[in-house]
Structure formats: structure tokens, C-alpha cells
């Protein structure tokens, strides 16, 4: 009889009902592929990296000894390698602070004063550089900062050459020209990562409710006071979110230190040299663990400060 067939739902309908009654199972099925991808290619790679860092290179044969040990970390904590770490961390910190200082006024203007039209133009101006090749921009800066480059020329024309020379004569961060000095490298880092700071600060500022600012002034707070006590604290999460980008991007970059600066190694280049030319994969892995640890600590602190609310 036909009633039988119509009273039994089709198989896919039964599957649908089965899954509907078990929301957890459908969730697992839905997420299985992305989770597998995440586990194998992201976490798996990180774990493999971590394991590698506990192996060591046999100096006699140049082969990797697959035995758990801390020799590689002993090597990492030698003075020369720690120089590389300190140099990178200091640069990353200074670049992050400079980016925040530069980005805040622009983000503030964009969020609070710019008309709809101007805001659109400013967004575009911030984002357009990100569309062009990173390499082209870095190599362009090399030419801009060169001894015969436009900045030096500008100082010459204004008769300010002694000022530039005095800046370049500063020990440690100076050099024979801007492109050969840490000052130049700092400028390029700030230029390259600035948009990553502007956008989160801007997002945080836009979320500061107007009513709070009005309330502050109603209660007698001067603009200055309102800024320091109301607006800035509410924007801190955005600044921290931006600094996560600038800090971690500077920690890992190996192109800029190889084109600009005085050739001193940064973590990225040290990793590249150790795994690429030396075949010392354990030490390269140990070097890579350093930014992972630093960022881990930084993220925990940032989370406490509520930075991720602004992402």
C-alpha cells in the first residue's frame, strides 16, 4: 500500500532528523575538516618545531641527533645569540611604541572629526600601501635613505647636513648613512607596520560612546581631562591589539634587516641562516621558540587588559 511508503521518511530526511536531535554531532561533522587542518598544519607544525628544538646537531658529522636534550638551548643562550634576541625585541618594542604614537592622532581624527567623505579617503590612504608589494616598498626605502638619496639631499639643500651627521654619529644606532643604520631600519619598520596599528586604534575609538564624553563634560571635565581619563583608557585595548601586530611582525621579519641597517642579525635572519645555510635545524627551531614564548607572554598580559575585545 502507498501509505507505508509515505509514512516512512526518505533516508536523507532520517539523517537530517538524526542530526537535528544531536546538535553536538552535527557540530563535530561541520568542524572536522577545519579542525583537522588547524591541528595538522598549524599545531602539528608548531609541535614539530618545538620537538626539533630539543634535538641537537652533531658537530662531527653535521647530522641532526634525534635525542631529547638541552644542548641546543645552551647554544641559544650564548652571548652572541642573546644579542640577536635582545636586538630584535628592543627594535620590536620601539617600533610598536612609535607606531602607536603616530597612529593615535590619525585614528582619532578619522574616528571623531573627519567627515564621511574624508574618512573614506583616509581609510583608502592607509590601506592602499598594503596592496603593493612589500619587497618593492622596502627596496624603495633603501634608495630613499641612501647616502645619495632624497633625504640626505633635502638636508643638504636646507643646509642642515651637520644635523644629519650629528644624528648619524650617535653610537650604536647611527651609521655611515641612514640606510646603513638602525635609525633607518626603525623608520622602515614603522612605515611598513603603521597601518596595522591605525586600524585597531580607529576601531576602538569609534566604539567609545559619545554619551560618556558628554557625561564627562557635563560633570565638569575639561577636554584634556576627558581625554586622559575617559577616551584613552577606553582605547588602550585597541592600542594593545595594534601593538600585537607590529610587535610580532617586527619580531619575525627577516627582509628589512637584510636590506636596511648595518647587517646585524635579527631573529628572522638568524633562523634563516641557521636552517638555510648551516643546516642547524635544532638551533633554528630554538630561535623560533623565542618569539613564540615572547608573544605567548605578551598575549596573556594583553588578554588581561582586554585587548581582544577590540579586535
Amino acid at each position: 500500500m502507498t501509505g507505508d511508503a509515505s509514512s516512512r521518511p526518505s533516508w536523507w530526511r532520517r539523517v537530517a532528523i538524526y542530526l537535528y536531535q544531536r546538535p553536538n554531532l552535527s557540530l563535530v561533522l561541520l568542524l572536522a575538516l577545519p579542525l583537522l587542518w588547524l591541528a595538522v598544519f598549524y599545531l602539528g607544525a608548531l609541535v614539530s618545531l618545538l620537538i626539533q628544538s630539543f634535538f641537537k646537531l652533531d658537530g662531527f658529522t653535521g647530522r641532526i641527533v634525534r635525542q631529547f636534550g638541552l644542548e641546543t638551548y645552551q647554544q641559544l643562550f650564548t652571548a652572541a645569540n642573546m644579542d640577536v634576541v635582545y636586538r630584535t625585541v628592543i627594535m620590536a618594542a620601539v617600533v610598536s611604541v612609535a607606531c602607536a604614537v603616530l597612529a593615535f592622532p590619525l585614528a582619532y581624527f578619522m574616528a571623531r572629526y573627519a567627515s564621511y567623505r574624508v574618512r573614506g579617503i583616509l581609510y583608502l590612504a592607509v590601506l592602499i600601501p598594503l596592496w603593493s608589494s612589500y619587497l618593492v616598498r622596502v627596496y624603495t626605502w633603501k634608495i630613499i635613505l641612501a647616502q645619495e638619496g632624497i633625504i640626505t639631499w633635502f638636508f643638504n639643500v636646507l643646509g642642515l647636513k651637520p644635523v644629519l651627521d650629528a644624528i648619524l654619529a650617535i653610537p650604536l644606532i647611527g651609521g655611515s648613512s641612514l640606510s646603513f643604520s638602525f635609525i633607518g631600519m626603525f623608520l622602515v619598520f614603522v612605515y611598513i607596520w603603521l597601518p596595522y596599528m591605525i586600524l585597531p586604534i580607529n576601531a576602538a575609538l569609534e566604539r567609545v560612546p559619545k554619551s560618556l564624553i558628554e557625561a564627562s563634560s557635563d560633570l565638569g571635565g575639561r577636554p584634556n581631562y576627558t581625554f586622559w581619563r575617559v577616551i584613552l583608557p577606553l582605547t588602550v585595548p585597541g592600542i594593545i591589539a595594534g601593538s600585537i601586530f607590529t610587535f610580532s611582525l617586527t619580531l619575525g621579519d627577516y627582509i628589512i634587516p637584510s636590506v636596511i641597517g648595518n647587517s646585524s642579525f635579527f631573529i628572522g635572519r638568524a633562523v634563516f641562516a641557521q636552517q638555510g645555510t648551516a643546516g642547524n635545524i635544532p638551533l633554528a627551531a630554538a630561535f623560533t621558540v623565542v618569539p613564540m614564548v615572547i608573544m605567548g607572554v605578551y598575549l596573556v598580559v594583553a588578554k588581561r587588559l582586554g585587548a581582544f575585545d577590540a579586535l
Partner: peptide, 21 residues
């Protein structure tokens, strides 16, 4: 014999020299 400095030591030490050590 086997007393020469292998390449991976060259890498480590050259990084140190460039870093001013």
C-alpha cells in the same frame, strides 16, 4: 685529523662577528 671547525660553527661565529662580538 678531525679537529677542524665545521661549517655550522662558522655560521654561529660569523653571526656573532657581524653583531659586533
Amino acid at each position: 685529523g678531525q679537529v677542524c671547525v665545521p661549517y655550522y660553527e662558522w655560521v654561529t661565529n660569523y653571526i656573532a662577528v657581524i653583531g659586533g662580538r
